[in-house]
Design a protein around this nucleic acid. Sequence first.
DNA 1: AAATATCTGTCAAACGTTTTCAATAACGGT
DNA 2: ACCGTTATTGAAAACGTTTGACAGATATTT
Lengths: 331, 331
Amino acid sequence: MPRRPTITDVAAAAGVSVATVSKAVNGRYGVARETVDKVLAVVAELGYESSLIASSMRSRKTGVIGVLVADFEPFSAEILKGVGEALRDSRYDLLAYSGSHGAAEGWERRSLSRLSGTLIDGAIMVTPTVVNVGAEVPVVAIDPHTGPADLPTVECDSFGGAVQATRYLIELGHSRIGFIAGRPDLRSSIARDAGYRRALADAGIPLDPALVGSGSYQQDAVRVAALEMLRRPDRPTAVFAANDISGLEIVRVASELGIDVPRDLSVIGFDDVPEASQATPALSTVRQPMQVLGAEAVGMLLGLMEGKTPAVTHVKLPTRLVPRDTTAPPP
Amino acid sequence: MPRRPTITDVAAAAGVSVATVSKAVNGRYGVARETVDKVLAVVAELGYESSLIASSMRSRKTGVIGVLVADFEPFSAEILKGVGEALRDSRYDLLAYSGSHGAAEGWERRSLSRLSGTLIDGAIMVTPTVVNVGAEVPVVAIDPHTGPADLPTVECDSFGGAVQATRYLIELGHSRIGFIAGRPDLRSSIARDAGYRRALADAGIPLDPALVGSGSYQQDAVRVAALEMLRRPDRPTAVFAANDISGLEIVRVASELGIDVPRDLSVIGFDDVPEASQATPALSTVRQPMQVLGAEAVGMLLGLMEGKTPAVTHVKLPTRLVPRDTTAPPP
DNA sequence: AAATATCTGTCAAACGTTTTCAATAACGGT
DNA sequence: ACCGTTATTGAAAACGTTTGACAGATATTT
């Protein structure tokens, strides 16, 4: 059990004081060139690395950024990827913390308070319900579905994306366009609904309430809504789904009903989850640049951590239309 | 900026010494019942939480377990989920660290050495190439593709799973069964190959080298191999792919060649990635219980951390056959 | 009533750093 | 030779906690 060498060991081996070692290692001013070299040589030889704990203790900085995710699902994973990437060449480490499942109400706040100021220098929350944080460290929220509006936030332009998707269907020639909504309590979901209505209104197409189903982002709810909508004699020729999971389910339902996609029915989703491109036929959708979301959040957080109040505290990233094989002109 | 209260604040407010507070908070023996109550009341009132950093400093324990993942992809995410779940009711926190991408060779070792003994009490490695760790903390590897054999390891029974899959095809009545291999340098890949051969041998079916293609787990390599195999006049009636990605690609190739799956060709994969069940037709496969992998690793690691040398250092989890829509009796 | 055991609580020393400040050495200018 | 700079180094304090040794006070035994 070779004990990890401490700064004292290095100091002894190099014949200098610990203070000098510390300065040399951290590149502080006031150490002779040759002393630095000598110390560094010993450091290399002994394989010394300063203890994150001990240095944090003194300097009140841990060099760790915490990401709170509700769960390790694909969406969070993509964001984590982006965050990790963005952090790669900063001097920060990434601590991903999942409080998911059985956890009692309010775990976000508790986790945050437990970690903040003691283990992390800043936090990014990727949790649907964002807490009104009383944290001692800067916090940025990614795509919060609900929560206080004063928290610095990075999200996608759900409204714009929905307009884009709907308009695309309109431009293909569709005029009977259905919509499967998401969970009515989520901000993004509401925005997508609004975008759909706006695009319709812009094109002068009246909204037919019979073509709006509620899916709640849940597979069976979507199935029910889709079945009902597609069985109508005046069924839509195209459907916009508030997310890809819903979109894929609609395609499945259509195929069960013998409706050919995209010949008889166009379907477009939202998110561009990995499954969307894997499916057959590949789902047309609106891409959320999730990795960019993460990166953006990092940029914002780093700014906050340096004490500067950033000009913008609410970033909205543009979405991109990704036409694939489930959309075509109406029959 | 309300400074977070320290143990000193609590001690002052409760009119006792810091030592007593520490003992009360940590439930140590030797402090009167009513004193504990008094202290705890103050703690609650002030919202005191001990500094992870400071306590780690003294007690040499951080209460954090690190998971090193190569990348935040679905596979890792599932494992993280399992690990997080298993850690939920232990007193440990989870630190996920990704060293992916551009990182230079050997990042695993460096990250581990940087974190170990200073920020984490134990580590789980979910990296293809596992380092010959000189870490100061216990380490468990999950499904290492390569690396030293003396490291405690948790993995799936690739061999058994491959036997299962192949035997299943045989039982359906197939006898010309192809195999698309994975990367020849990975342990799991080799085991799947061996399992395939074993099942064939057990059934007295001679191995036809023409029916074994090398896919390397890469989409285009799989495509080439599959094309070649399926264009043969004596093409197989079933194919076992070393992983789902390969399996899905084979289905795709088959459909391009006008070969109906599963009527004219059965395909079975390995892993049960989310896409497998989403695809149409849904891919038959062999499921790796990834969340269980994570949980198992946690159990092992916790044991190691308590100093006990566990009876088994190499756990092999059973896989489960998941028949879906790409397998059927031969024509 | 004395001796001893049991219980509580406090003191002070660690843990490995960083950082401030004073001490020393070296140097150039007069 | 002396003094004022400047460059380099080391001593010591601080960060917030845990913990072992110890002292005082009660309670128990003889």
